[in-house]
Amino acid sequence: MTAPQNPITRAIWDGTLPIKFSLDSAEAAELGAKVLVEPYFLEAPRCSYFPLLTSQIRKYFVDMTNMALNFIGDDAEIWYDVDGIPLKWHYPIGLLYDLHTGYRPDSNSPPPLPWPVTVHFKNFPIDKLIRAQAIDATQDFFMSMIKEADFLRNGSTKKVMNLSKNDQTQLLDGLWSSFSQKYRTENYDRFWSINYRLVTNDGQLPKHIPLRIYLPDNCPVIQEPIAPSDENGNQLTLGDVLHQILPELFPSPLPTENAFAAPVIHGVIPQLNIPILWASQNLCYPDNFLHIVVLLET
């Protein structure tokens, strides 16, 4: 089955980030590296997750440093940080980049690319990161997000739970295999031919929009029940929603000159007048949430 042709969801699916993975220098010395360990460069899909990259990153640094395999085995909990801040492995890579670089696309400065990420093999920060970042755990977390999005739309998870085993497998395999550039189109069709029915809610107006808002300085994630329209049946826009939830940062639902705050979705500042339902259906991540990073002028 072929996915409906949507150039927007396809462009999001094809979006990538060049990343520079560097082994923590103190750990490299402690683990016995005798020379400078060269970084590992990788072009990663924005919609992917770090645990899907871990096996090749582990192999590279084990080979480069001649680490003892019994010390850095398949069950070692590799983790990543940027500027000393641990990266939440259950967040999509593109979301982490938008959140941690603080890069505003409307600024005159160039984006921080390749994105410098530090790799750790030791001292897993159990007070900051969820453990069990194996592939199975990542799949489970991803499916829990799909179910949560379905619950927000319908008040139940019936649409997801009613997917056949084959459909669920196709959904996961399509995303999990998206790292392969060679099969990117095939995997897009596999994933979106199933997910399209969930995102569009089979043509029914959803009760609420699956939406999360992220603020700087490690503020708690904002997730509130947002209807797609007001009490008069008028469609709400992205600006309406931001003004409703964050009136101090967005004093008007309309664009204003010299705006202090800017919403970023997939590395782009969207127009505030787009309908929030359209944004949810076209700009969501594969977990079916509309993830919005709010960046402030510095």
Rank of each mutant, 00 (worst) to 15 (best):
D81R: 08
T101F: 03
N166M: 15
L99E: 06
P114L: 10
L113S: 09
M143A: 12
L99S: 00
D75Y: 08
D127T: 15
L129C: 05
M161E: 15
I126G: 02
M143F: 15
M161R: 15
P86L: 01
N154T: 11
Y80H: 02
A132W: 07
W89I: 07
K128D: 09
V117P: 03
S156M: 13
I130V: 13
D106S: 14
F124I: 07
K122W: 11
K165Q: 15
A134K: 15
A134R: 15
K158P: 06
I126W: 13
H100Y: 13
I135T: 13
I78E: 04
Y80M: 03
W89V: 09
W79I: 11
N108L: 14
L99I: 00
L113H: 12
S109D: 12
H100W: 08
A137N: 06
D74H: 10
Y103M: 08
L163H: 11
D98N: 09
P116S: 04
A137T: 09
W115Q: 04
T101W: 05
L99A: 04
I85L: 08
Y91W: 05
I85P: 00
I72Q: 01
K88A: 07
F142M: 04
A137H: 09
V160I: 06
D167S: 13
P92Y: 10
L129E: 03
Y80W: 09
W115Y: 11
D136A: 14
F141Y: 07
S164A: 01
D81T: 08
L163R: 09
K147I: 02
P125H: 06
H120V: 11
D150I: 09
A149C: 14
H120L: 02
A76N: 06
P112E: 08
I126F: 11
S109F: 12
A149L: 09
W79A: 08
A76P: 05
D150V: 12
G73T: 06
A134L: 10
P112Y: 02
K128G: 04
L163S: 10
A137C: 13
V160Q: 00
P86Y: 06
T118P: 00
V160T: 07
N154A: 07
F121T: 11
A137R: 11
F141W: 03
V160W: 10
A149F: 09
A137E: 09
I130L: 15
Y80R: 03
S164K: 03
P105R: 10
G73H: 06
P125F: 03
L87I: 09
M143N: 10
D75C: 08
L99C: 03
M145L: 11
K158M: 12
D150N: 15
G102S: 03
F124V: 04
I130S: 12
I135D: 07
S144Q: 07
Y97R: 04
T138I: 14
K88Y: 02
I85W: 01
T157H: 05
F121A: 00
G94A: 10
W89Q: 02
L152P: 02
D106H: 13
K122S: 12
T157C: 06
K158Y: 09
